[in-house]
Amino acid sequence: MITKKRLLASAALAMLGIWSLSQASGQGNMAPASPSPKFGASLDGALAVDTPQPLPALPTAIRARADALFTDADDVGQTRALLVLRDGEPIYERYAAGFGPETKLISWSMAKSITAVLTGFLVADGQLSLDGPAPVDAWQRSGDPRGAITLRNLLHMSSGLEHVENGDPVWEGDTVAMLFGGGAGDMAGFAEAKPAAAQPDEVFNYSSATSVILADILADTLTPSQNPDARRDAMRDFIGGRLIEPLGMTSLTPEYDAKGTMIGGSIMHATARDYAKFGEFLRNHGVVNGQRLLPETWMKFMLTPSANDAGYGGHIWLNRRRPAGVTPALWPDRGPNDLFACIGHQGQYIIVSPSQRLTIVRLGVTNDDQFPALRRHLADLTAAL
């Protein structure tokens, strides 16, 4: 049985790698992004120049810090895309061979922050309540302790549900089971069926299944239909009108399960430039081209440390000290206090440093044992900037 499970997990992860590479080649259910005129030439000379304007000259020391994310692959893994914006304008852009400005790459858990913003839209519209009981039908039976879970609890990863993000071995965790195992057909049903292991707001428990519950709540709010096509269409229309079109994130491609629920915790695809647009949206606290799309109060919520882990806000990582013995997500000893980031498996980052007027996107493949070096390189780059 163990051998069978190991083979299943390995096959699932291999399949996802192939899926990710197919998306990187531009395949998917949305068209690739149109080149943005504000972006200049890639620093990788093998790539075509899509606009005639060169990027501004960078000091040698800063360029060396950025280039090191490509040249020090033995330390940090493969960097496929690196994009640095200051005041919304690109100052560095480079891609690995085989990747370019129109390559869509997987978000992994950066998707969680996008799900949080989508939740914020519906809270601002008055269709959801941050501190009311989360509207999950399976939790509404009399005496069910899960009925006390709020959206705030879910967004802070403190629902108290018995979720196991990373199993030991990996196939024993909820993430693999939900994405590729018995939960794959109805990911929200799998996640919502987990029992309560603690009181809401009692413990911090990072969980991709939690974000799928939020995505299910979003779909249920947007349409009463349980038809998978209707649920997907409702979410696509909502994301298109509230996020993709206003921000120009035309490459953003969320994926859905068989029930039509967005996989809001881990599987979206977009170009580096479109991830940067999302970072700029957050850097400007929900304002795009002078128009406020997301209330300042929601941004303040997302960027306020949660009660049980100061390094985490509302589905986003903060540059704050985490509890003793917990691996740091960012670099609180070196970077500005207002720095925050969307972070995904294998080293996907959208780093936003408002006081430095910076947004940095790094996409690639980093192994677990390379993460300390990757964090050091990214901290060095932000410090140099």
Rank of each mutant, 00 (worst) to 15 (best):
T103C: 09
F70A: 01
D137R: 08
I213E: 00
A31R: 12
D125H: 11
L82Q: 11
S266M: 10
P133K: 05
P323N: 10
A193I: 06
G314V: 11
H163E: 03
W317G: 03
G347K: 07
D72A: 15
D216Y: 07
G160V: 02
S211K: 00
I316C: 08
R242Y: 04
V365I: 11
D233F: 03
L151M: 15
E165M: 04
E102K: 14
R236L: 06
A341H: 08
A33S: 13
L8S: 11
N337F: 05
S225A: 15
N289R: 15
P328D: 13
R152C: 00
L43M: 14
S353F: 02
G173I: 01
G182D: 13
E172Q: 14
D229P: 00
P200L: 03
I149G: 01
D186H: 08
K194D: 00
V326W: 11
Q356G: 02
D201I: 01
P195Q: 01
L16C: 07
D257I: 01
M299A: 08
S107F: 12
R292A: 09
D186M: 03
D220P: 03
R273C: 07
Q140G: 04
S10V: 13
F99T: 10
A329L: 06
M262L: 14
R152D: 09
M30D: 05
G160I: 00
P52L: 10
G279H: 06
L128G: 11
R232K: 13
V123G: 04
P195M: 02
N227T: 06
E165D: 07
L43Y: 09
Q370H: 11
L214I: 15
E245H: 11
I267Q: 02
T175S: 01
D144A: 02
L43A: 13
T297H: 10
R232S: 04
N166M: 05
P90R: 09
L252K: 07
K38R: 14
S251Y: 00
L8C: 07
R65H: 14
A197S: 08
I18W: 14
M1E: 14
H377Y: 09
I239D: 12
N29F: 10
R273E: 14
K38A: 13
G182H: 05
Y275F: 15
S107E: 06
N337C: 05
E255Y: 05
P295H: 12
R334G: 11
L69I: 11
L16T: 10
P56D: 12
K104W: 05
Y349W: 15
L214W: 03
W19G: 02
P145C: 03
T115A: 04
R141G: 13
T175H: 01
T327A: 14
G260S: 10
